[in-house]
């Protein structure tokens, strides 16, 4: 199992490098505390906006505040984990442009692990923490007929969502091998994706929902499982059990992301840019 041993090697290297960055950050402790607080505030803005909206209305697209908070909590927690773990891949273009990417290629550990752990920013936990808090409140506040399956669905959904967003970060990073200046396109999918998912699917145009369900299956980060939890109909006719398809969808996202990454790296190594 060469793949498996490489994965283990990658995780180990990731840990080593991330550890170095955490220690580097701690060299400026006060600044670190400040940026964690700032990150909490910044990432909390989206929820503040939702609260402001609900100060004017009782429901948005037919969904109540606790229900929208459930969407928000699932989306932001998953995105927070993915961004903490793989967010640095988004700055790959800069490394390629200034040539420092080469220094990663002479090390005996997987490049993806090095890029992902590069400038590991612990302050990003702010987003996840804030997502978990909202998620916790929402789970208490929503009316759900809890069953074992539904209870299990929550953590599974968070993990799968994190994997889906991570795949998006990696694929976006690989795209920067081809277009180093196009980092912002990636933001449309990552940050745009998590923002989109904070609102109920009933708010959006049917074509957009269809695209987000079948083409870029972000809907499995929260829309589909949340609709199941809340006993709400999903705007598109999905088969029974679709809410539990998260792991499968995550796998479907990871495979092409990995392939695109390999393709991007190969193209870099043949063109040097």
């Amino acid at each position: 199992m060469r793949g498996a041993s490489r994965a283990v090697e990658g995780v180990r290297a990731y840990g080593l490098i991330a550890g170095m960055w955490i220690r580097s950050t701690m060299a400026y402790r006060a600044s670190f505390v400040l940026t964690v607080v700032g990150n909490l505030l910044l990432t909390g803005l989206d929820f503040v906006t939702i609260l402001l909206m609900f100060s004017q209305v009782d429901a948005l697209g037919g969904w109540t505040l606790p229900e929208v908070a459930l969407l928000y909590g699932l989306s932001v927690t998953a995105f927070g984990i993915a961004q903490l773990a793989f967010g640095s891949v988004a700055s790959l273009g800069g490394r390629v442009r200034d040539g420092s990417f080469d220094t990663l290629l002479v090390r005996p550990v997987p490049v993806l692990a090095q890029v992902a752990a590069d400038r590991f920013a612990l302050r990003r936990v702010g987003r996840g923490v804030q997502g978990v808090v909202v998620l916790g409140w929402a789970l208490v506040a929503v009316e759900v007929d809890w069953s074992v399956g539904k209870v299990l669905l929550v953590p599974v959904t968070v993990v799968c969502g994190a994997v889906i967003f991570s795949a998006l970060f990696v694929a976006g990073g690989a795209f920067q091998f081809l277009a180093q200046d196009a980092a912002e396109v990636q933001n449309a999918f990552t940050y745009g994706g998590t923002t989109l998912l904070q609102y109920p699917p009933s708010v959006f145009g049917r074509d957009l929902v269809r695209g987000v369900t079948f083409v870029l299956p972000l809907a499995f980060v929260n829309w589909v499982p949340a609709a199941h939890l809340l006993g709400r109909p999903y705007p598109l006719g999905l088969p029974e059990g679709a809410a539990f398809a998260g792991p499968l969808v995550a796998l479907v996202c990871v495979l092409p992301a990995a392939a695109v990454w390999r393709l991007g790296l190969r193209s870099y190594r043949s063109t040097g840019s």
Binding site: D102, L105, V106, R266, R269, S270, G272
Partner: peptide
């Protein structure tokens, strides 16, 4: 370019 090929950064054509 030579050094990059020797170190495995670049693939020779």
């Amino acid at each position: 370019t030579t050094i990059k090929m020797l170190t495995g950064i670049l693939t020779p054509s």
